[in-house]
Design a binder for these strands. Sequence first.
DNA 1: AAAACGGGGGT
DNA 2: ACCCCAGTTTT
Length: 425
Amino acid sequence: MTTHEQQEQEVKRFFSTNLLEWYKVQKRDLPWRRHRNPYYIWISEIMLQQTRVDTVIPYFNRFIERFPTVESLADAPEEEVLKCWEGLGYYSRARNLQHAARQVKELYGGEVPNDRDAVFGLKGVGPYTAGAILSIAFNRPEPAVDGNVMRVLSRYFLLEDDIAKVPTRVKMERLAAELIPEGEASHFNQALMELGALVCTPKSPRCLICPVMEHCAARLAGCETSLPVKTKAKPPRPEERLAALVTGSGEHAGRVLIRQRPQSGLLARMWELPHWPAPPAEGGGPGALPEAAALDRLRRSLRQAGILARPEGHWTAAEHTFSHIVWTLQVYICREEDALALPLAAEARASYAAAAAVPAAADGAAGTGAAAELAPAEPFADGGHPEDAGAVRWIRREDMADYAFPNVFLKLLNSYFDEAEKEQL
DNA sequence: AAAACGGGGGT
DNA sequence: ACCCCAGTTTT
């Protein structure tokens, strides 16, 4: 063995032993670290995907209280799981998690399997989460490479590969596996992620308190802040939308109309205020749509969705940023026309739902050119909006507890009910 | 290989 | 106000 290879080995050994010692002293007291319950580890790892520890903690505690075991999760109504996930984002994680709980119940007697292929086969479990469960819960020497780990390794070993690429992750996994000290997979993998979260942070790493800074190649080269290398995500596309806050009349007095989103796609099965794409303003940029045009457009969208309501005026604007879209919602207060006519509205929705089941023309034509000129009762040029088939409910503030809302609608509804309450006084 | 899929924190 | 962060599934 050459001296160069010996040095390389020494740098690796230094990293592993120092990091492990640091972790044993510095590790945070986190709810899922208080027991070695594979179910807790699994739930926490799914929640921690794309999400920071501080955000996850209250969700984790509520979730475990409500679904203490794999079986309780497998047997729960899906809406309750979704409600528990409300505000956490990436809601397919919640549905995949319940699907996987049913897999564990049916296939493995309710015990999280201690087996690589079995864990991998669970819905919502990919290479990172499989490694995390196997190492943290069962102390198996599997790598668990997330963004934190790639940042730490790319700096310590000065690796300039693009961490957005799959081959880079595979390379990091090989390296991470090599670094695991005998019998210490659980602590070591957590140590790696803990270092990335507390010390080797993206913007201004705290190199002076880092347990391995002495041999950190990026630090020695003075390039730690330019690592890891990562291709930039493309900016989200803007979408202007008109939203309706419909207040009930007659038997719906004091209530607001909400509707459920489709079974798949963005915010699947979540509840919301109804909203539709805003037609582009005359020769104008976004947001320039005149109020009269917006009211007219909204009136026709409501009618087409089978909602008998009249838009009355602009209430507020709200912005909601996804990773790939930015919604600007112009919210209009609308008044339900006649509660007694609701059966008719239900009928309109049902017939529209049937029509919507027929494959419609490609999306994107909404509100452009001719569509803006159509008579009120005519469908839009693109065949309508897929959301319009969704179920609707009239709710009071107390009823919000029974429906899962994306954050933007949670805020709008709370704010509306606050205002409505104040006016009562 | 690239896009879809939320929400929050740092600067 | 703007920039950054990041696993799995679907296309």
